[in-house]
Design a protein around this nucleic acid. Structure first.
Length: 935
DNA sequence: ACGCTCACG
DNA sequence: GACGTACGTGAGCGTA
């Protein structure tokens, strides 16, 4: 197998293996295997080694290579991103359990004694191109082991390709079959046709067929572009004239670079026999039993013992050490920290948790960091523990034996930013923000809370204590044991380090174990894509939004609050007057007694507590009968709500440093995929009433800026039209007509023109009712009509739109069968209550009907948000808020139109390319100095 | 700690 | 035939 080392030339045969393609193929072809002894993901490495072994075993004929190399991609950013920033922009993020396997695939290649090549800033394709050119120029033959169509331009004159799966050779004929042109014109065709996978734009509306036709007619791309006027088809002609520049850019993107610098010689790629001991040692270390045995037999060597826990007798979880079995280490000096960092680099992953002085990530200070790499072992690095109670007399001082926070952060920064090291957290957005305030953008990340959410939404919540108990059978140390509760509660900084260490280290270890538990389950339950595309990428996006905050004018709120206080006092006087006695207007109990016992109005008892209901609809009914007191109460309640929840509470949320309000979004809070906003909730700022809407005037743009709001129009109804496949509804949305008027017209047989607003209102209520899993009772209450009438409406509706009934029935049946429903994008929402009987069954049924619709809308805006930072990167604009179907931006005043164009585009195509909706998504936009104006 | 009420989509 | 329901949230307040 060894050739003389005279140099690479005639008679030599170079094999170039597309390593990255091998890895992805291996990853997707195999179930998510983990290494028995420690649970790290190893499936892609296993597949990679199998493929490599098969390759090596096959090379023994007369056409065996004299030289061989495996080429890998080094990083995602290459010179092509300089030419076109969007290049490969819509690639999904790497699966988190794949990235840590990358270093191992390099090791594997070396273990096979094959040259392993990667170059910073270049794609594997470019290195393959350069090597092919060089080898061909030297008179040798080249075989590229890959089926990547982007490499087909290299075929010809001694270079061919080999599809490693089909074992099929790809020569000039096969290339011509695929592209309609010879290999030398492949780039021209690709430049025209573009590539949605790599996000090469190409010419809109032109695919490979048309591109080949044009190139064959005009000879080459430049001739085509310079003589575009001669194209007969007017539309095609115009497209090529309009997009000439874009097409030229596309060509530069697809054209592989034969001049890629190489810091090694062809000679160095000479085929070497595998060294049995090195290869077998690696395979045994990976615990690949079958392959180790097979290789040992073939090489005539003795197979080393594969040491790991023997296969479990049942399918139970692998044997793991007990919690903390190998100790929780307190790290107090640089030497110890460096030891951990070295271990992390070796492992390729680390579970991490931060302890801070408070729960508000915008203000909390770092107190300590805990790390865990494997089950049974973790450490805690205290940095901010203090002694004394911090008051004037017991002045606080730093506890001795801690590293400085700055030194720890400086040491951890390379780890936290290392693309080859996965950082695993539980609710990692919290820790991400803490580090971001110290100039560290942590990446890549995994989040056990989000893994659980992707799997278990609808079944249970996803807090660490809950997950630890359910999946690890472990009860976490309650935080209360450290900081107490109520009045005597202390901050984490005041906790003694000896007590903090086991608590904090345990959190990191639990996180690590949860990650190991969930990683294989995500695949098995088919929610990996949801986790990778809809959950994990939200973390940095939301963290940035939350840290940006929105400017709130405290003075305006204060003025409003005073006005509200006056109005409340005035209303209270009137109310007491009408009631004939003084009482607490804010007490439903006292109010109920006044209304129903004392005044004897009609309205029954409700609820288990036996209290009268005094809710708005009860009071509205009474007011409609002409009673003044309930009407005044309603007024008072509105003002009271505005004052307490909005003007007063909001002021307390203005961050003193930034002068802005920083909400926190929970990614895993709602069952359906929606976000939830807390502290404060900025997703329920008043808008429906004139008075309430004025609160939004206090949400202002910073000077020189504007607030811009973009919202999806009728997104849930559009999704309903698509998923239930309702022709009339789809057509109406395509035609852009008033959907509620159309519904009314279909139901009641009246023309849209000059329609009675009442009729339209009823149709609108029915449309919404459908989304919620309509019932006659619910509709009758909403519309305040007799139940029989409401039921008749619903019957008519189902007659006119029979597909809706079919959709609802099918959704419920699916839920009963599977125990969950899925959105268009694969998000899984579990429906544990669906097979119950009794009153609860109705609720579960309606929730199951609603979830795929509400959830798909949530998925779509998530997709838009994830793409948004890149789309507005060059604009002076920031995304600040999300309100389910609305995104709010802050933009420099000169750039509002540009922002709207860019953001609208992202939002309108957000479902693609995964889902091509049968209806358009329409986005409305508004601009203003404040949120009231912009909405 | 829990229920009621009400703000939003 | 009766049961009680519109779907999804979070916050403030009163009450126990």
């Amino acid at each position: 197998m060894t050739s003389d080392s005279q140099g690479f030339g005639k008679g030599c045969h170079l094999h170039l293996i597309d390593g990255s393609a091998f890895i992805f193929r291996a990853y997707h072809a195999l179930p998510p295997l983990t290494r028995k002894s420690d649970g790290i993901p190893i499936g892609a490495v296993a597949g990679f080694c199998n493929m490599l072994w098969k390759y090596v075993s096959d090379q023994n004929g007369s056409d065996a290579p004299t030289h061989v190399a495996v080429i890998f991609d080094h990083s995602s950013k290459t010179f092509r991103n300089e030419i076109y920033p969007e290049y490969k922009a819509n690639r999904p993020e790497l699966p988190e359990d794949l990235r840590p396997q990358f270093p191992l695939t390099r090791e594997a290649t070396r273990a096979f004694n094959i040259a392993c090549i990667e170059t910073e800033g270049f794609e594997a394709d470019d290195i393959i191109a350069a090597l092919s050119c060089k080898a061909r120029d030297a008179g040798g033959a080249v075989t590229i082991i890959s089926s990547d169509k982007d490499l087909m331009q290299l075929v010809g004159q001694g270079v061919n390709m080999l599809d490693p799966i089909k074992g099929k050779e790809i020569g000039p004929d096969e290339v011509a079959e695929k592209f309609g042109v010879g290999p030398d014109r492949v780039v021209d065709v690709q430049a025209l046709a573009g590539d949605s996978v790599d996000n090469v734009p190409g010419a809109p509306g032109i695919g490979i067929k048309t591109a080949a036709l044009l190139i064959n007619e005009f000879g080459d791309l430049e001739s085509l572009l310079s003589r575009a006027e001669e194209i007969k088809q007017p539309k095609r002609r115009q497209t090529l004239i309009d997009h000439a520049e874009q097409i030229r850019i596309s060509k530069r993107l697809v054209q592989l670079d034969c001049d890629t610098p190489l810091d090694f010689t062809l000679e160095s790629l000479e085929v070497r026999d595998p060294q049995a001991d090195a290869l077998l040692e690696f395979l045994a270390q990976m615990e690949f039993r079958t392959l180790t045995a097979r290789v040992a037999e073939k090489l005539g060597a003795e197979a080393p013992a594969v040491v790991s826990a023997p296969p479990a007798e049942t399918a139970a979880a692998p044997e793991l050490p007990a919690m903390g079995a190998d100790g929780y280490e307190r790290v107090s000096d640089r030497e110890a920290l460096d030891r951990w960092i070295a271990e992390i680099a070796l492992a390729g992953h680390v579970a991490i948790d931060t302890e801070t002085t408070g729960l508000d990530e915008m203000q909390a200070e770092l107190v300590g960091v805990s790390l865990s790499i494997r089950a049974g072992r973790a450490c805690y690095i205290p940095v901010g523990h203090v002694e004394g109670d911090g008051d004037l007399f017991g002045a606080t001082g730093r506890v001795a034996g801690q590293m400085d926070a700055s030194e720890v952060l400086e040491a951890l920064k390379p780890v936290l930013e290392d693309p080859a090291i996965l950082k695993i957290g539980q609710n990692v957005k919290y820790d991400w923000k803490i580090f971001a305030r110290h100039g560290i953008r942590m990446t890549p990340i995994a989040d056990t809370m989000l893994m659980s959410y992707a799997l278990n939404a609808g079944t249970h919540n996803h807090g660490m204590d809950e997950l630890a108990e359910r999946y690890l059978g472990h009860k976490c140390i309650p935080i209360k044991e450290l900081i107490g509760s109520g009045k005597s509660q202390i901050g984490f900084a005041q906790v003694a380090i000896d007590k903090a260490t086991p608590y904090a280290a345990e959190d990191a270890e639990v996180t690590l174990r949860l990650w190991q538990h969930f990683a294989p389950v995500l695949h098995a339950e088919r929610v990996t894509t949801v986790y990778e595309t809809l959950e994990r990428p939200m973390v940095p996006v939301l963290a940035d939004m939350e840290m940006a905050g929105i400017r709130v004018d405290g003075e305006t709120l204060k003025r409003m609050s005073n006005a509200f206080a006056q109005k409340m006092a005035q209303l209270e006087d009137e109310i007491h007057e009408l009631a004939g006695e003084k009482f607490n207007v804010g007490s439903p109990k006292q109010l109920g007694e006044i209304l129903f016992d004392k005044m004897g109005l009609a309205g029954g008892k409700q609820g288990k507590t036996g209290a009268y209901s005094t809710s708005a609809d009860v009071l509205e009914d009474l007011a409609a009968e002409g009673h003044d007191l309930p009407a005044r109460i309603l007024d008072w309640r509105q003002v009271s709500k505005l004052k307490s929840t909005y003007t007063d509470a909001l002021q307390s949320h203005v961050n003193p440093e930034t002068g802005r309000v920083h909400t926190s979004y929970s990614i895993a809070g709602a069952q359906t995929g929606r976000l939830a906003s807390t502290d404060p909730n900025l997703q329920n700022i008043p808008v429906r009433s004139e008075e309430g809407r004025r609160i939004r005037e206090a949400f202002v743009a910073t000077p020189g800026h504007r607030l811009v709001s973009l919202d999806y129009s009728q997104i849930e109804l559009r999704i309903l039209a698509h998923v239930a496949d309702i022709p009339a509804l789809k057509q109406a949305f395509r035609d852009g007509i008033d959907i509620h008027a159309m519904t009314a017209s279909q139901m009641f047989g009246v023309p849209v023109e000059g329609m009675d607003p009442m009729i339209r209102r009823q149709a609108k209520a029915i449309n919404f009712g459908v989304i919620y899993g309509i019932s006659g009772y619910g509709l009758s209450r909403n519309l305040r009509i007799p139940r029989s009438e409401a039921q008749a409406f619903i019957n008519t509706y189902f007659e006119r739109f029979p597909e809706i009934r079919a959709y609802m029935d099918k959704t419920v049946a699916d839920a009963k069968e599977a125990g969950y429903v899925r959105t268009l994008f694969g998000r899984r929402i579990n429906t544990p209550g669906i097979n119950q009987s009794g009153p609860a069954a109705g609720g579960a049924r309606r929730a199951a009907i609603n979830a795929p619709i509400q959830g798909a809308a949530a998925d779509i805006i998530r997709r838009a948000m994830i793409r948004m930072p890149e789309a507005i990167r060059d604009l002076p604009a920031r995304m600040l808020l999300q309100v389910h179907d609305e995104l709010v931006f802050e933009v420099e005043e000169g750039a509002t139109e540009e922002l709207i164009a860019a953001a609208r585009q992202v939002m309108e195509v957000a479902a693609e390319p995964v889902v091509k909706l049968a209806v358009p998504l329409v986005v409305d936009a508004g601009i203003g100095m404040n949120w009231a104006e912009a909405h």
